[in-house]
Computed example of a mutant assay.
Amino acid sequence: MKVEQTTIPGVLRIGLEVKPNDDGWFKENFHREKLAALGMDVVQHNVAYFAEAGIVRGIHAEPWDKYLSPSSGRVFAAIVDLRDNATFGQVETFELGTSDALFVPRDVGNSFCTLTPHTTYNFLVNEHWSPERVAVDLFDPELAIEWPIQELSYTERDATNPSLEQLRRQRA
C-alpha cells in the first residue's frame, strides 16, 4: 500500500498492488490493520455495479469516512472539500483503476463518473449508512469540474443539488 497526501487535507490517494496470475489478477483491497492505521475502522462494505460508461454520481459528503476503489473498470473521481475550513470548495480529480483507492474523510464531497462499461466500485465506510448528507451540484461553474465524458447519466436527485454558493448561504 503506497499512501500519498493530496491537496485536500485528509484525502489520501492509495496505490494498491495488483498481482497478475494465470487467471487474471489478485489485490488486497481491504486490510483491517492498514486501514486502522489511516484512522478508519470499517463497519460496512458496499459494492455498486454500473453497466455503462458515463454514469455519474455525487457530489455527496456524508458523516463518515470512505475508502473507495474499483474492482473492475475505471472511474473519474472528483473530490470537493465541503468542510467549514480554509479549503472549502477546493476540487481535486483522480482517475482510478483497480490498482487505486482513495481515502475520503467525512464531510468531504465525493463524486465519480464511470469511464468504462462494467465498472464495479467498492465503498468501505466507518459508520452505517444513514440518509444524512450534504450535496452540491455536479455542474456548478464555481467548481469547474471537467467531466471526461460528454453524455452523462445521473439521478434526478443529483440534478437538484444546490450550488456551492447556496451551500455557503445555508451555513451563514
Rank of each mutant, 00 (worst) to 15 (best):
M1F: 13
E4K: 14
E4D: 09
E4M: 09
I14V: 15
G15W: 08
E17F: 10
N21T: 05
D23A: 15
D23F: 15
G24I: 07
G24R: 10
W25L: 06
E28V: 12
E28G: 10
N29G: 09
N29K: 08
L35F: 13
M40S: 09
V42E: 12
H45M: 10
E52D: 14
A53W: 15
I55P: 00
I55Q: 00
V56T: 06
R57C: 03
A61H: 07
S69A: 13
P70I: 04
P70Y: 03
S71E: 12
V75E: 01
V75N: 02
A77D: 07
V80N: 02
L82R: 07
D84N: 13
G89K: 07
V91R: 00
F94S: 01
E95S: 05
T98Y: 03
D100L: 02
F103G: 02
P105G: 11
C113D: 04
H118A: 15
H118L: 13
T119A: 13
T120G: 04
T120N: 09
F123S: 06
L124T: 04
L124Y: 15
V125G: 03
W129G: 04
W129V: 06
E132A: 14
R133I: 03
V136C: 05
E142I: 03
E142D: 09
I145D: 02
P148A: 08
E151V: 04
T155M: 04
T155H: 12
D158S: 05
D158H: 14
D158K: 11
A159H: 11
T160Y: 13
P162Q: 12
P162C: 07
P162I: 06
L164S: 08
R171G: 00
A172L: 12
